[in-house]
């Protein structure tokens, strides 16, 4: 019969490289119509990072996501970037993009200050305008300022910047030091059905509560969590590269190496923990990798909760779970009624 179980797992995960420098640089150009272009050396690998970077630049300049064009991933045209690795894009490249946008904005403020008859530090960028703080009616459209900066002042609003997380090397004897700029935290709780006659495990539901600092784009955070969980389900229950006795892979194809399909996906409920990291762009940290970190552990704990067997090696295939249930049955002394 099917036995229902539930299990939880929590985790912590760092953002960026372990101690070693992993800088990003960025260039932001503001055009005469009030839109902007971001140049970045990072690569969109499907996670939506370029949209997040556009949102960060847009936020700094007080414009909308759609107003930022992102040019990426060309070593001739874009500045240096350590790349789409180590859950670092939002935090490291995002910080570089924000700082570059801030520098371009400073030029706008210098130009706008005499236009509005105030000092540059009395200005803010908001809703496509350069506004005198506290006097929203005193404003100039950001496009007019950008145009004025070029045509009249001869000072095109362009900014460039770089960012590298602050770290301290680890002591080789004790491993003590500050290897990462910041960390994220998460908990996932899985509900599973285990068939005690076949060992088959079905993941019914996963609740995922993730901290990523400020979610720059909550929809993309949810997308990452859902994708990570699908990878975690495969890691927990199905996927394994097998070798023959001579060290050659025997299942290098998707017929015999099974990955989860949409039919294997549990119901996923994503919950984003309210948090803010002062070292991240607008308080953001990252979310890419951690999304799959606790999934397998939560599922295996749920199996334990369902049928009382501890699976100590992944993947928890039906054969392995069934063998563990059998072993437990065999070990149990049979009660004989009087």
């Amino acid at each position: 019969m099917k036995r229902r179980g539930r299990g939880m797992a929590c985790m912590w995960y760092p953002i960026g490289f372990t101690v070693s420098a992993n800088p990003s640089a960025a260039v932001v150009k503001i055009d005469e119509d009030g839109t902007a272009t971001l140049l970045t050396g990072t690569v969109e690998t499907g996670q939506g990072s370029l949209t997040v970077l556009a949102q960060i630049v847009a936020q700094e300049l007080g414009i909308a996501t759609d107003d930022v064009q992102v040019v990426s991933a060309d070593t001739d045209a874009t500045p240096m970037d350590t790349g789409a690795i180590a859950s670092r894009t939002t935090y490291v490249t995002g910080n570089a993009a924000r700082l570059a946008a801030e520098k371009a904005k400073e030029i706008l403020f210098e130009v706008a200050a005499p236009m509005l008859g105030v000092k540059a530090d009395q200005l803010e960028a908001k809703d496509h305008k350069i506004v005198v703080k506290g006097y929203p009616q005193r404003n100039v459209h950001i496009g007019d300022v950008a145009s004025h900066a070029r045509v009249v002042m001869g000072q095109p609003p362009i900014g460039s910047a770089s960012f590298n997380p602050a770290t301290v090397p680890l002591d080789p004897e004790t491993g003590q030091g500050k290897p990462f700029g910041t960390y994220v935290y998460a908990t996932q709780i899985a509900e599973v059905d285990v068939d005690d006659e076949t060992g088959e495990v079905e993941v019914i539901r996963i609740v995922a509560s993730h901290d990523c600092g400020t979610p720059i784009n909550p929809m993309l955070v949810e997308g990452q969590v859902e994708g990570g969980i699908s990878m975690g389900v495969g890691f927990a229950l199905e996927e394994e590269i097998l070798f023959d006795s001579q060290g050659r892979q025997i299942n290098p194809n998707l017929t015999n190496y099974i990955i989860p399909t949409s039919l294997d996906m549990p119901e996923v409920e994503v919950d984003i923990v309210d948090n803010y990291d002062p070292t991240g762009p607008f308080g953001a940290k990252g979310v890419g990798e951690p999304t799959l970190v606790p999934t397998a552990a939560a599922i295996v704990n749920a199996i334990y909760n369902a049928v009382g067997v501890r699976i100590t090696s992944l993947p928890a295939t039906a054969e392995k779970v069934f063998a563990a249930i059998q072993a437990k049955r065999d070990a149990q002394p049979k009660q004989i009624t009087a």
Binding site: A54, I56, A58, G62, A64, T65, D66, P215, N217, P218
Partner: peptide, 12 residues
């Protein structure tokens, strides 16, 4: 098209 941009469920 919305401001502020951060926190929006902006499409890609």
């Amino acid at each position: 098209q919305q401001t502020p941009a951060v926190g929006q469920r902006a499409t890609r």
